[in-house]
Amino acid sequence: ELSWTAEAEKMLGKVPFFVRKKVRKNTDNYAREIGEPVVTADVFRKAKEHLG
C-alpha cells in the first residue's frame, strides 16, 4: 500500500464505507501504473476518472 496525503485520505473518507477498501486498492494500483510514489488528491481524481 502506498502513502496517501491527508487531502487524498479526506477524499477517500467521502467514499461509501462498503467500497472504500476496493477504491483504496484500485487507486494504489493506478498510482503505481502511472509511476506515482504517493497518492495525492490529484492522483485520486485521475484514478476516479480513469477507473470510472
Rank of each mutant, 00 (worst) to 15 (best):
E1F: 10
E1S: 11
L2R: 06
L2Q: 05
L2T: 07
S3T: 14
W4I: 00
T5G: 02
T5Q: 03
T5H: 04
E7R: 07
E7G: 06
A8P: 00
A8L: 00
A8C: 02
A8V: 02
E9L: 15
K10H: 09
K10E: 14
M11T: 03
M11R: 03
L12G: 01
G13M: 15
G13H: 12
K14D: 13
K14S: 08
V15N: 03
V15R: 03
V15L: 15
P16H: 07
P16V: 03
P16A: 05
P16S: 05
F17G: 11
F18P: 14
F18T: 09
V19Q: 14
V19N: 13
V19I: 14
V19D: 14
V19W: 15
R20S: 04
K21Y: 09
K21H: 14
K22R: 12
K22Q: 14
K22N: 10
V23N: 02
V23C: 07
R24F: 03
R24N: 02
R24Q: 07
R24W: 04
N26C: 14
N26S: 11
T27S: 04
D28H: 04
D28S: 07
N29I: 10
Y30R: 02
Y30A: 02
A31H: 00
A31P: 00
A31N: 00
R32H: 06
R32P: 00
R32N: 06
E33C: 15
I34W: 09
G35K: 06
G35T: 03
G35E: 05
E36C: 08
P37E: 11
P37C: 10
P37M: 13
V38P: 00
V39K: 00
V39W: 00
V39P: 00
V39L: 01
V39A: 01
T40F: 01
T40E: 01
T40C: 03
T40D: 06
A41R: 06
A41G: 09
D42T: 07
V43H: 02
F44L: 06
F44M: 05
F44I: 04
R45E: 10
R45S: 08
K46R: 11
K46C: 08
A47S: 06
A47L: 05
K48D: 06
E49N: 10
E49T: 10
H50V: 11
L51V: 09
L51F: 15
L51D: 06
L51N: 09
G52S: 13
G52D: 14
